[in-house]
Design a protein around this nucleic acid. Structure first.
Lengths: 140, 140
DNA sequence: ACTTTTATGCAATAATGTTGCATGAATAAA
DNA sequence: TTTATTCATGCAACATTATTGCATAAAAGT
């Protein structure tokens, strides 16, 4: 889904096509890192905080966005891929967080390794966050 | 550090020994899952919210606790191990989050696999969160 | 016991998350 | 293309969490 037309994406998920949703979706598509609600609020002051909040919630439910775990307390969001549906998210990629600029990006190429757990644990999915320095920040 | 005397732990990290710090530390030691600030507030209403907040911050800085990333927006905290110092956290374990009871536990036994990233990424540390069902919740 | 240093509680504020409801916009139906 | 219906939006309001400043109280050093 990553690089299609925003309107097509909305339609295919049974979401009404509105200015806010198009804007948010476009913003995600042109940005190479995860976005927080605050990021959106800064860029789209023409939309209400609550509308942006609900837009994110809707996109999460429909499997358009996924929430990225972060120890900062901020929630941030990234676009999902074709494997995600309203029934559930099915990710196999990992997230890289730069401790310098704070940006989080999804690394689609890199896959999450299988991990063996003791039998008493039933695994549903794995989140992998790698923290370090991104290329942009290594020369600063 | 996991199972030592709270007072000894505080002393060895150059922290004053106070009721609140002892209580919080003891609570972490007797609990098998990660705790949030809310958990502490419920259990220790005799201490101010802000004091508990600052206690957690101090413990983080000193390397007594580590923050566990979570996509729920709640921050939660777990005890560190001997490898952590005020200079940085050095963890090699993963976290299991039960989607049923919500508890997060540190699995010390299980190690985080090495992961190869493209060269432009400089890796500092890896956070691995596995979500699923814990043994207590599988029969419910 | 006294001094110095640091933690605590209280007040206050900011940011974020969340819900209800009236209105307006988007889709479906005629 | 107009009308009816469904749903998104904005506003108000509130809950929760995160955060800082400051006076006081408590801990450690002498």
């Amino acid at each position: 889904m990553n690089h299609k037309d925003p309107i097509a994406i909305l339609r295919s998920h049974n979401l009404r096509v509105t200015d806010c949703r198009i804007a948010v979706l476009q913003h995600f598509m042109k940005t190479d890192h995860a976005l927080s609600q605050g990021d959106l609020e800064e860029n789209y002051s023409e939309f209400d905080r609550v509308t942006l909040y609900r837009t994110l919630q809707n996109f999460l439910e429909k499997g358009i966005l996924h929430r990225i775990p972060d120890d900062s307390g901020f929630a941030s969001y990234g676009l999902c891929f074709e494997t995600c549906t309203p029934d559930g998210h099915h990710h196999d990629h990992l997230h890289f967080k730069c401790s310098d600029c704070g940006h989080i990006q999804c690394l689609e190429q890199t896959h999450v390794p299988k991990i063996k757990l003791p039998k008493q644990f039933q695994v549903d999915h794995i989140d992998l966050i790698i923290e370090g320095t991104c290329s942009d920040c290594q020369h600063a």
